[in-house]
């Protein structure tokens, strides 16, 4: 970033898109890996976790941005944590009210959203310096990027590990599920696979751009 980080950013497509691809919290920044590995054993859990995190990201982003001139610098981290914890608790109750089975499947990882560094990172690095609109758009982008990453993992793990997607069977009943994919090691394998795939794409793009530039220079 060449911009002076102290100045509020103007709202642009990039504000949203940042979290999706260029600074994707999972695939680029490798943040919040604890839920990424732990609750992606099926697509439904991944989606629920992604949505819960997105909700907390947006709400805490809005509140932090709203209070950014009021919160004294010395106690800002404590304040952010309280704000984040509040929304996490709300999500916790909401999920219990929606479905106990889902709540059981996600386990302690709902409460652990509090310590997800993506959220605190966004509050500190973005929301506390930008307007409410920017903060919420940026948080939405990050949230969607995080949910996308969780779904990438959850989808692959469920298809291989249980032969289904979102609970719908994909194959004949005689399909042999690869249980390793729903077990913890599978999380690491699938994450590594996606990281590999994305870095290959990125390298290819970079090489293509370079080639184009060279061709442009030559003509």
């Amino acid at each position: 970033m060449v911009n002076d980080p102290r100045l509020p950013e103007p709202l642009s497509w990039d504000t949203f898109q940042q979290g999706l691809w260029k600074e994707n919290p999972v695939f680029v920044m490798l943040l919040g890996l604890c839920p990424v590995l732990a609750v992606t054993n099926n697509a439904m859990n991944a989606l629920a976790m992604g949505l819960a995190t997105t909700f907390v990201l947006i709400c805490s982003g809005v509140l932090v941005s709203l209070l950014r001139k009021v919160i004294p610098k010395q106690v800002r981290i404590a304040s952010y944590i309280i704000i984040i914890a509040t929304f996490v608790t709300i999500v916790d109750y909401a999920i219990q009210a929606i479905s106990l089975d889902l709540y059981k499947a996600l386990g302690a990882f709902i409460q652990l959203i509090v310590v997800n560094c993506i959220i605190l990172g966004r509050a500190e690095a973005y929301a506390s310096k930008n307007t409410i609109v920017n903060a919420s758009v940026n948080a939405l982008g990050m949230g969607v990027g995080f949910t996308f990453a969780l779904l990438c993992l959850g989808g692959v793990r469920e298809v291989f590990g249980s032969g289904s997607l979102f609970g719908f069977s994909l194959f004949a009943p005689s399909f042999q599920p690869w249980s390793i994919f729903v077990l913890p090691p599978g999380g690491f394998f699938v994450l590594a696979f996606w990281l590999f795939l994305f870095s290959v794409i990125k390298e290819r793009r970079k090489a293509a751009a370079q080639l184009k530039q060279e061709a442009g220079n030559a003509s």
Binding site: Q176, W178, S179, L183, P185
Partner: peptide, 10 residues
């Protein structure tokens, strides 16, 4: 170890 975790029954 991989197949032990992947195909525990077989």
């Amino acid at each position: 170890a991989f197949v032990q975790a992947a195909f525990p029954a077989s």
